[in-house]
């Protein structure tokens, strides 16, 4: 399967510079690979960084952390990687793809999400066991589903899901459309969904959190730009933006 990943990464390798019109020689470009849940926050950070450093061009490639990991292992010319969990970053560290040590960027936790107005009257984790409610979770193969099952196990709740969505945004869409009564998503997703979705806190004794590490990559075509970008994200200016999107301090 590794060859498959290499081929896929090769496609990305060829396609990325072609789409953006830049090459590895262009020292002003910084290519950032970031986990999907970072979509909104990093769009804002991109603008702020480019304003702070005129002449630079940040390009952000968004996908699931495990897809990004495979692309980097396949030789994609990324400068910076932000993973939504420590295990995907850990694989890259073991493979010698990371320059230096990854640094913890943010922490994210789960929340119960219900459609605006909470029409089904959901109040606690126990409601996820109800067969009368339409319950959605992330598939256990993706980090949000794995984390959610961990939380439910700690609370002693056996869930009765009506769907195991392949990613957190798909789950959020169905909750926002009112097609599901309740689901478990990241706290930051509830914020990004705006008025469509309401969040219900999970008691701290059951909740689990995930740390997002950030790292410069060994094969970064623009190491100076990568270092500058990571510095900015971890600075007060970056912190404010991440806070605004609901990400906690690690």
């Amino acid at each position: 399967m590794k060859r498959f990943a290499t081929v896929m990464a090769g496609v990305v390798l060829v396609a990325t510079p072609a789409c953006s019109g830049t090459t590895a020689d262009d020292k002003s470009a910084v290519l950032v690979f970031a986990a999907s849940s970072m979509t909104d926050a990093f769009a804002e950070i991109e603008v702020a960084f480019e304003n702070a450093h005129p002449g630079t061009d940040v390009q952000i490639n968004i996908a699931g952390s495990s897809s990004l990991r495979e692309q980097i292992l396949g030789g994609a010319p990324a400068d910076v990687f932000v993973s939504a969990d420590e295990s995907n970053m850990g694989t890259l560290v073991i493979e010698g793809e990371v320059a230096g040590q990854p640094r913890p960027l943010v922490v994210n936790g789960l929340q119960l999400a219900v459609p605006a107005g909470n029409p089904a009257g959901v109040s606690s984790l126990g409601d996820l066991a109800s067969s009368d409610l339409l319950v959605g979770l992330c598939a256990e193969q993706v980090p949000c589903g794995f984390l959610a099952r961990g939380v439910l196990a700690r609370a002693g709740v056996e869930p009765s899901p009506d769907t195991n969505e392949p990613d957190v945004r798909a789950l959020l869409t169905k909750i926002g459309a009112g097609e599901l009564d309740v689901g478990m998503v990241y706290r930051t997703d509830v914020i990004s969904a705006g008025d469509l979705v309401e969040g219900i806190d999970i008691p701290d004794e059951y909740n689990l959190s995930t740390i997002y590490p950030i790292a410069q990559l060994e094969g970064a075509p623009n190491p100076a730009g990568a270092a500058l970008f990571i510095e900015f994200v971890l600075s007060e200016a970056g912190r404010v933006i991440l806070d605004g999107h609901g990400f906690g301090l690690p």
């Binding site: 699931g64 193969q141 993706v142 899901p161 009506d162 769907t163 195991n164 392949p166």
Partner: peptide, 25 residues
């Protein structure tokens, strides 16, 4: 997957099963 969701035995057809397994197994 968008309309019917993904639940083993109810809506998880072969293509959906492939998709959720691809990155983990």
């Amino acid at each position: 997957v968008t309309f019917a969701g993904n639940l083993q035995g109810r809506t998880q057809t072969l293509p959906l099963a492939v998709f959720v397994a691809l990155e983990s197994n």
